[in-house]
Design a protein around this nucleic acid. Sequence first.
DNA 1: ACATGAACTTA
DNA 2: GTAAGTTCATGTT
Length: 950
Amino acid sequence: MSEQKRLFLVDAYALIFRGYYAFIKNPRINSKGQDTSAIMGFMNSLLDVIKRERPDHLAVCFDKGGSADRVEMYEAYKANRDETPEGITTAIPHIFEILKAMHIPIMVKEGYEADDVIGTLSRQAEKEGYKTYMVTPDKDFAQLVTENVFMYRPVFGGGYETWGIPEVQKKFEVKDPLQVIDFLGMMGDSSDNIPGLPGVGEKTAKKFIKQFGSMEGLLANTDQLKGKMKEKIEANGELGLLSKQLATIMLDVPVTFDAKDFELDHPDVERVKQIFQDLEFRRLTENFLKTFANNEETSTVESITHTTEAKTTSSKLKASAGAGQFSLFDSEGSNASKTETDSAFTRKTAETTSHFYQYIDTVTSKKLFIEKLLQQTSVCFDTETTGINPITAELVGIAFSWEAGKGFYLPFPEEKNEAQKLIEELRPFFESESIEKIGQNLKYDIKVLAKYNVEVKGKLFDTMLAHYLINPDMRHNMDVLAETYLNYTPISIETLIGKKGKNQLSMREVDLKEQTEYAVEDADITLQLKEHFQNELGEANTQKLFDEIEVPLLKVLADMELEGINLDKDFLYSLSGQLEKDIAELESKIYKEAGEEFNIASPKQLGVILFEKLKLVDKPKKTKTGQYSTSEDVLSYLAKDHKIIQNILDFRGLSKLKSTYVDALPSQVEETTGRVHTDYMQTVAATGRLSSNNPNLQNIPIRTERGRQVRKAFIPRSNDYTLLAADYSQIELRVIAALSKEETMIEAFNNGEDIHASTASKVFNIPINEVTREQRSNAKTVNFGIIYGVSAFGLSNQTNLNRTEAKELIDTYYATYPKLRNFISEQVDFARDNGYVQTVLGRRRYLKDINSRNAVVRGAAERNAVNAPIQGSAADIIKIAMINIHNKLNEGDFKTKMLLQVHDELVFDVYKPELETIKSLVKTEMENAYKLDVPLDVDLDIGDNWLEAH
DNA sequence: ACATGAACTTA
DNA sequence: GTAAGTTCATGTT
């Protein structure tokens, strides 16, 4: 069990300040009038670290006398820092006293800051083979991180996060933690009074680091900059270098790391108790006693962990039932060895049933386990990893369950080769065609395993997908499902790794017993959910949709996501520069026109300028929150009244373009693959469509000339490849024509007519070649309106027609296409009778509001009743095409890959020699994915980027 | 630090 | 009028 030794170095002042301000609203004052907030806050953190981590070595580091060197360099250094609050200065002697009583070494060195002391010690400890954890919230320390040196940051709301090299690379967007110095030097730090470069903030600093690598790199290449920025940086090179020096933590402080001195040994309990009593700390005393009592207990438990004898629970500390104590493989069905949940466990899950979860940590038990595993016909599994991004995540463990209430957890070693060896032993299971694999969101697990070169074969059952088909309007996360269908509350991941968001620990840091309880429970629950959903799929008549569409598609999506797409970052960088310039110009024009400077991006401030200062309109429209509405349609209506309006609209358009696409996309290129990997969500859209996020590649601009340029950045993987975009022409109108059996429209499609022009010709009763642009455009609007469930009101809003003209147009439209009108009322009637509507493949959408007495609510449900079968059927069709194409590409061993899906379009990276074959393959598969009474038509385009391929 | 609303992007 | 996702400002832990 002897891991590498771990040294914890605590940045005292940082934690004291943090503790002090945590209580600032409600300071702790004892009966003697002492403000003990700082002491309390600090001690809480310290005990917390000890309790969580059980360090073998620990020291607390203080500043003393400021940094003489730094003041010499820059006299303003830390000058504008506020005077230390009295509550802190008075706390220091007490803290010293407590630390002494606890036998914790205190490190101070006159003339050096704690950063420098910690930095120096970490380097010495590293040489002696220690892993060092720097306990501090201060981001500056990130520069010290190495393979063996970590930041251990307390986070708001409790808990800690560990920053190793990958975390630092991610947070600061640097390649090497040392670049954090350049980053801080460029952007400056007001609390340390590091000046930084003028005009450079976080974003620009990150950009520079990526572009030039360092401060020196930037200063040597200012010729690549433009405009004001160039001038400012060239003029301030000295300041930049000085800032970098100020930000650098020293590594040569005259202190010595002596392992023996730093060993964490037993505190003088009586003395500490006495001090705490004097300060009137009651909870803290308890906490302290528990922390150190706990320590003893832990070592006892560990010493018995590997015995096979089930041990009677003698202490409330042994909370994780079952795990670790196993009389395993002779235990099938034997209640005697089943560990009942005890009080400490039951408190989290009220209706917990007894369970039998075990982890596997010996060669023999592993051998037995794999033997048993391979005898099963159906197994639920769940991977636990270091993160939520499957491309970078590493396996921490895999849980398995094939019988309700029971399961096993196989932890994975951190070392890569060892992990690979272990997964190889599981390969026969994962690649077995005859063992069914069950899971919740299998796409994730499949992607993780793919990174270990393991393919998941055999029949699949994904409980998330199953539930999506059973009830698409609900949410499908496991916790909700367990509560709804099993009346069971699973252990939340938050109790393990801390609050959601950025504050999470890695699963790797969680105690093995807790990992087991959590992971196996997930597999167990998922297995039980499967039993439940299996029957419901049959009842909802969606078994086929599940087996033939959604489940096969999951693997297709996994492949597409792993593949990613190549992005021309440099192109976007230069685009960003142009946009920045244009935005700045618009900005100054707007300020001039408004007569003052304000935040144009703030609808609130903008509203005041437009409607109170410039009084552009008498009765300004308000939003539902009571603010002035400055939405696009309101503003374009005013564009003729004041030239500021057009500038504002342009400003908004360009800002959106820059922030959401031009600047965001390059930062989402995956470091390890050099490509952008979107995540397709298969279970969010109520109609059956996919959605895409991180980044969303389904809303890349195309309508405006400027926006469309972004598509030039999406490029083939190399010169041997080209992009192919294949899109269905008017698929939704074809679907509605086919479903309604409207002959007039079907005939137009059969004849290959321009459907909007054809509609205009019929509605306005003129020959098709005499249709004007405006007529075609109005016809187009109505055609789309039908798909969305028209109203005259909506239509008049979308066109230049007034309400009566709009009504008239709709009436004529229905007269032209009578069966469309029938189809619409049939859908609504069907929904009223059955409570749902469905697509060509039987995908259902339930409409609970269809019989609502509230006309607005009911109207919305009626529009859903019309739209869902159309949008959903189109989604069904392209899904079929994707599965078939994916199969064909695999069977034919093509180098060509399918990369993207954008609702009615598929994008491929085509290996040039395969181009002709692929073109016909794709067209055939898409057009014949599903047989309708209307031909499906697919347009193909190729190009050296996504814009050209259109 | 986190959630919400407004605005803007797509099919 | 349908279906989505991201960013920014803003107000609240």
